[in-house]
Write a protein that binds this DNA or RNA. Structure first.
Lengths: 207, 207, 207, 207
DNA sequence: CGTTAATCGAGACGGTACGTCCTGTCTTCGG
DNA sequence: CCGAAGACAGGACGTACCGTCTCGATTAACG
């Protein structure tokens, strides 16, 4: 949470005096941010004034909740939930490819359009970075499980450094989505080719 | 070229009438941009007014040359020349590590400080992207040569897809510089660990 | 009023939503304009930026109230109140001279310094002209009263066209303040000589 | 003359070396100024750049001849010659009215359109003021001759202060052209009414 | 007859002010 | 006390002129 106002005390539900904050406003603001991002507004030039106008909300209502644009972005992004792909669970190779694919191929969902343009903002904001990590963690965890399963089955080397493998697999796909132009057009089948190419480094020695 | 005024016809050197544009101003502007970037100004919030002030130049002198901030950035970046590392040439492994290291560890040179914060802008601008590719091409070419040498010597597999290998090696390092926080602190020895980890996928089968 | 925003309906005092405009800002702006004018800034080259700086106000705060420099000038001038001279009331001739004198001899009051340099702007702006007329009307009205008193007493012709007489008396003094150089230096005693010279045209026939 | 370059030595006609200044440029510049003024450009906001463009001349060619806008205006105005009205010479009253009329009623000639809007600039510039006086002097002199003739014929008082009479007659007409809005619409027959009204102050005592 | 030197047009130069827009804060009202 | 509405001081935007300068090309008179 990057709310400006400190949270309520844990033990007792103290009711704040005066008019309670409108949940409708919260939603409307977050929705407005996501819509603007999805419409192509470059995250950095997202203007609070535009958000307020689109949400039908006063600017102060935004500043009362978030101290800066970063915080607003964080909470907006946090509300995105990327669904995880269903894994067949039969082949380690296929599961890895399935997990890598959506990272490299921007879907037509709103989340799919927003995430890539956030990559650019990560290095500016530890908050946003942590938030991004949190959102993508389930996908990474899933990948770890797939790898551990491969090790258990004897398909993969037992001495793999899982975190390093994640970097090796995810890194090229992420980098490609930044370094390629137009974004993510080259190498649509990159995940497949990537997994196959590094496979000898992952696979347990035959015999 | 991102000049506003269209170029001269190729066959004949027609001299434009009026006072020619000042080369000193060109330099001063580019230098000002680079200095501001190196001083930590986040590339997107680089203000033309600040550039003009730092360069000791009228705003119009900038707008006369570049139609927008992107063009100015492109030409500023284009003037950066990253020196290539000297390669020992003895070990393919060591050469690859040497080539990867400066990408991941921002040097104290101005170019070293500027390049990473440009990664964020690449996906917004095809021009800037092309410019970035052009600048980094020599380093990629060097890496290709190292790989080819390894193949010739029999150290590396003969059927390697060089471009794919570049993606596999460079991708994780670039991604790390974007996804890690604080930037490039984790994994200082990433290049070394990376090359060693994927080595089995590159090396020619023994015997 | 030369406000940009249209006025409220007459019958009902509808309160505008949002923060009301600051009266302090109004004052500060007007004061700044008058100070700058009195300091010798030639009314035409009065820069909004300078006004804003002197008033300690954002430029937008000025543009929110006035659409152009003319309107601002009008309202600034409108805030000037020229005090009327005390008339002895004994002699028509002396009273007329007293009323004409301050027009021709710029006093050291702020209003006295500002008014003459506005004459030049009048022919450009109907608004400013009307405003000027309104400010000077009390003095003209006083002059009419003096003339009527003279007629009633039998000192002046009964068939005088009062408005024409005003033009005859005020015109030369005003014209002199424009056409003479340095301004208003020639003919310091012009009002006296003027009244005496045209007196035969005003006075009732003897006997 | 308000030329920037100092004049030639008195005794000998030394010819300056180099290319002589183009008379065509002189004319074109003055013409451009007059055209712009006649087209309604408010004398103060007359931009040198516009003059240069309209005259088909480089800006430096203007600045080489005149140090400032005032000088340029002066020379432009100096090139205007107001033709004097033909006087019937029979009646002093009619001649005075004829001499006053064109001052108050802007003609459709270029000079007629330009002169009134210069009145506003006079108090800013001694040069321009002197130039204006010089141009209008012939008309004033003519008026003096008419008055002297009236005196000689016994129609007018012998003790008239001619200069004061000029002020009394011309002042109201000039003032009206500045203070009235729209300019010079009120009081089209002001000259006639004016002369008739002050006539008792001018006329020689009957008998 | 070629040199010399000030002119010409054009237009770039460092600046200043323009009028607009957005920022983050504040101040009013009605709910 | 929160809601919207919107004014506040500040500051960057991109444009238009300012008055100066620097080009290559003219255009005389001088040597």
């Amino acid at each position: 949470m990057s709310d400006v106002t400190t949270s309520l005390p844990a033990d007792q539900e103290r009711k704040a005096p005066g008019r309670p904050r409108s949940a409708r406003a919260d939603e409307a603001i977050i929705e407005a941010v996501l819509d603007l991002l999805a419409d192509g507004t470059p995250a950095e030039s997202l203007s609070i004034e535009a958000v307020a106008a689109k949400a039908g909300v006063g600017k102060a209502t935004i500043y009362r909740r978030w101290a800066n644009k970063e915080g607003l972005l964080v909470d907006a992004v946090a509300s995105l939930k990327g669904e995880l792909p269903r894994l067949a669970g039969e082949s380690v190779r296929d599961d890895l490819i399935a997990l890598l694919r959506p990272v490299g191929t921007p879907s037509h969902t709103r989340a799919g359009k927003i995430m890539p343009c956030l990559l650019s903002e990560l290095h500016r904001s530890p908050e946003l970075y942590r938030c991004f990590q949190k959102i993508t963690e389930p996908r990474r965890e899933l990948m770890r499980q797939v790898l551990r399963r491969g090790i258990d089955r004897g398909e993969l080397r037992a001495d793999l450094d899982l975190e390093l493998v994640l970097v090796i697999l995810v890194g090229p796909v992420v980098a490609q989505s930044i370094l390629a132009w137009p974004p993510a057009v080259h190498q649509r089948n990159l995940p497949e080719r990537l997994v196959d190419a590094v496979w000898p480094a992952l696979a347990a020695p035959a015999g």
